[in-house]
Every structure is written in structure tokens, then in C-alpha cells.
Amino acid sequence: MDLHERLLVQVSARDVYDAVALAGHPGSGLVFTGQAAHDAVRMVRRHGYDGPVLADRRRYAGSARVRGTARLSADWIADQVESGVTAPLTDSGYIGKGDEESLHAILEQAARWEGVIAVLPLHARWLTQDRATLTRTVVDYGVPVALVVEDGAPYLPMALPLLAAGVEAPAALAYGAEWAAVGVREVLRHLYPDTHEPRGGWRRGGARSAFVTERLAFVPVERLGPGTCGCSTCHGRPLRHLVAADELVVNTHNAKCLHRLHNRLLRATDRRRWWRELTAAALTA
């Protein structure tokens, strides 16, 4: 159940009944999201799921998100361990632009628990102008971390695990990250700036996006082009058939296409070069 080179699927705790179908292939795993995430972990464990599972409380997102100086919860850690997670994640708050106090607060608290992964939800500037400070601080504390990067700047790959990501997740693996997680829907593939945070969460029947491998992008189903897909969900049909499909079918397509991409990544002899060439080809697609 280790996380080594895993491409995880990040879902809401409400997706517990569909989750195993999305993460049942080799090399995958699950991240449940929300206050009830540990309950979802417990449920899939009781039903025999033996892949890696994490629980992200996501206190760093939404209009009521907390700052990274907030106290981390020992009860949250204990509940995760009891539920059967592969490794417990901290219930971190948000680390704003230049907020070194929050960065230190999360890492210092996380260091008190053995085997805990410190979640670092970061303003995008931390991966651009403040990248050296971030790297140095993480190394100094020596705590396992997982990044969540706020929208606002192009993602620059780092060899650190990612939560709540899109195509940045396989990019992180290509650059040496231990593991990474792709959100099953838009709200779980982004950390939106507070003023743009969607209100009310996800509603069944809402917007759906399909992963198009040639473009390395999630595309709203209404905007899919004429291409076809050979995954075992699409069976060579035009991608546009997903316009009329329900969300589980779209997400199953996404999971299978990402799994194939992940397998190609693991077979690449020079992963960084392979990813750069794939990205260049996607820009011309």
C-alpha cells in the first residue's frame, strides 16, 4: 500500500460508492476530500479496497478557509490512522503570498507526529519567486510534504507530491515526485483564489470535463473536438459521445486515459525529456 510512483484519484467523500471503480487499476489509489474523508476511507477499507488511500480535509479552500497558522488537529490525525489511511495528512490552512509564518507553523507542528505528511496549500508565487525559500524550508524541517498550488501562475514542476491537481500531477511524477493526485472534477483540480471560489460545492449533473490525452488537458464535454478515443470506456468512438454521458462515465474515461498515460510515463527511460516532448506535441494538437 505504499505511495511510490502512484497517480491517485482525488474525490469527494460523497463519491465513496464510485471511488473504487475510478481507482481500481494498478498504480492508482484514492484521496478522499472533506470533513468526512476519514469515514469514506473506513468504508472502502471495510469493503476490501487494499490500494493506497489518503484523506484531505481541505480546510485551506473555500470562502471559510483558515490561515496556515491555525492549530493542526491531533484528533484528525488519529481518526485517519484508525480509518486505515496509507499515511495521515495534516488539516493545514492556506499559506498566502510571502507568508513564511504559516509555512513554518505547519511544518513545525507536523514534525511532532511520525509518518505524517504536511499539506502545504500555497499561493502560486511560492513556486515562482519564492521557490528557493520553499525548498530550503522543507529540507530544513525534513517532514514529508504534499503541495496544493493555488491558481494564478503556470505550474513549474517540482519533485514534490501534489494534491488536488490536474495535468500537473503526471508532470510532477515525471520530475521525480513520489506520488501525485488528480482531482475527479474541476473543483478538486484547482485551488481557486478566495474571491473566485465556487460557492455551494459540486452538484450532480453539473459541468463535466473529459481528459484529452493528445492535448494533455481537461476539456468541457461541450467543447470536445472530432477526435476518437480508444479507452475501454469509449471503444474507439468519437469523444463527443461523452456529451450525453453521465459524470461517472466521463470520470471513468478520464481515469483510464490517465492510467494509460501513467503507464507510458513509468516506462520512459528519461521521464523529464519524455514529458517535455509530450507537452510540446500537445501545444500543436
Rank of each mutant, 00 (worst) to 15 (best):
D130C: 02
L22S: 06
R223V: 00
V250H: 03
P52R: 03
R240D: 04
D79V: 06
E178N: 11
H25C: 13
A21P: 08
A245N: 07
V11Y: 05
P121K: 05
L120E: 11
Y49L: 12
G200C: 09
I117N: 03
R112C: 12
A124D: 02
A177G: 12
E277L: 15
E168G: 05
L103C: 09
L156F: 10
A64M: 03
R136F: 09
A55S: 09
L162C: 08
A174D: 05
L266T: 15
D39M: 14
A74Y: 02
V184N: 06
R240Y: 01
L261W: 04
V184A: 08
G225W: 09
C257R: 11
T128W: 11
L188G: 04
A217N: 08
V66D: 00
A245D: 05
A70L: 01
D99S: 04
R67L: 00
G84C: 03
R46H: 15
R136K: 14
H123W: 00
R57T: 06
V243S: 05
A169T: 12
L89S: 06
N254R: 07
A169K: 13
M43H: 15
V139E: 15
P193I: 00
L163Q: 08
W275S: 10
D99R: 01
P161Q: 10
A171D: 07
R203I: 12
K97S: 02
L163M: 11
G230L: 13
L261C: 09
P121F: 07
L30I: 13
E100Q: 03
A36I: 00
L242G: 00
V221G: 01
R204N: 04
I95P: 04
D246T: 07
V41K: 10
D99W: 00
A110R: 05
A207R: 15
E150M: 11
R273C: 08
M1T: 10
D140P: 08
E247S: 14
D79P: 04
V66M: 00
H196K: 10
T137G: 03
T284D: 06
D270M: 08
A146D: 11
E247T: 12
G98D: 02
V41Y: 04
R240S: 05
V116W: 01
V221K: 10
S83M: 05
T90S: 10
Y17G: 12
L224D: 06
W126P: 09
V182T: 08
P154A: 05
A55G: 07
R260V: 11
V148I: 13
S92Q: 08
A13C: 06
R223D: 01
D18F: 10
G93Q: 07
S12C: 01
V53Y: 05
V31H: 08
G142W: 15
R189L: 01
C231S: 09
M1P: 14
G205F: 07
L22G: 09
G48E: 14
A174Y: 07
D99C: 01
R125S: 03
T233E: 13
L163D: 03
D18V: 11
